[in-house]
């Protein structure tokens, strides 16, 4: 494999603006695709393999994927300063936007139509959640133990209303131990 040419490392402010721009233009998912495009294909700041490693870890570890990925990329490029820049760039600008949106909608909340409109938005947005759930379920190995863990997690959280923290701790430990034992 040929060694990819080493591009100049980005500056902190360059990195910040790339993350902020991606954060502000990512509606309802697909952010990983944008990150890949910017960091690997356009700017060549990291290799695709390095990126995909980070992506699988970001998804496997707890924490919002996009934020995990931003911290991972930032750390790889600029160490701890990059990690901070990634975190702030991907969180703070959209946090300000959502508070503004919330304020606008709450000033409109005396109109019944606002709740009707938001219910329509929520109904369509549940589709994002469900389609992601279906995609995630498809990626589960077709074996008794993983499927039982998936079903058990669903029942405990959705039907029995057990606290998520303990459900995930227990299910996660069993599931990772099982995967570790089989991965020999």
């Amino acid at each position: 494999m040929s060694k990819p040419e080493t591009p100049p490392a980005p500056s902190c402010s360059q990195l910040f603006w790339v993350f902020t721009r991606i954060a502000l233009t990512s509606f309802g998912g697909g952010v990983s695709g944008w990150l890949l495009r910017e960091f690997v294909q356009n700017r060549k700041w990291m290799t695709q393999e390095e990126f995909l490693n980070g992506l699988s870890i970001s998804q496997a570890l707890p924490g919002v994927n996009v934020k995990n990925m931003a911290v991972w990329i930032g750390y790889r490029l600029l160490g701890w300063r990059g990690a901070i820049v990634g975190f702030v760039g991907i969180i703070v600008p959209p946090a300000i936007i959502i508070v503004l949106l919330g304020t606008i909608f709450s000033s409109l909340s005396r109109y019944a139509l606002t709740h009707v409109a938001l219910t329509g938005a929520a109904a369509a947005a549940v589709g994002l959640s469900l389609s992601m759930g279906i995609t995630a379920a498809r990626a589960v190995p077709r074996k008794a133990v993983p499927i039982a863990i998936m079903a058990g997690t669903f029942i405990a959280v959705a039907l029995l209303h057990w606290p998520l923290f303990w459900v995930v701790l227990a299910a996660g430990l069993v599931s990772v131990a099982y995967a570790y034992a089989r991965a020999s």
């Binding site: 998804q59 570890l61 759930g133 995630a136 993983p146 998936m150 959280v157 299910a171 996660g172 990772v176």
Partner: peptide, 12 residues
């Protein structure tokens, strides 16, 4: 193990 083990939990 982490990648494959956490997958069913996340899906559920």
């Amino acid at each position: 193990a982490l990648e494959t083990g956490l997958r069913p939990v996340a899906a559920g």
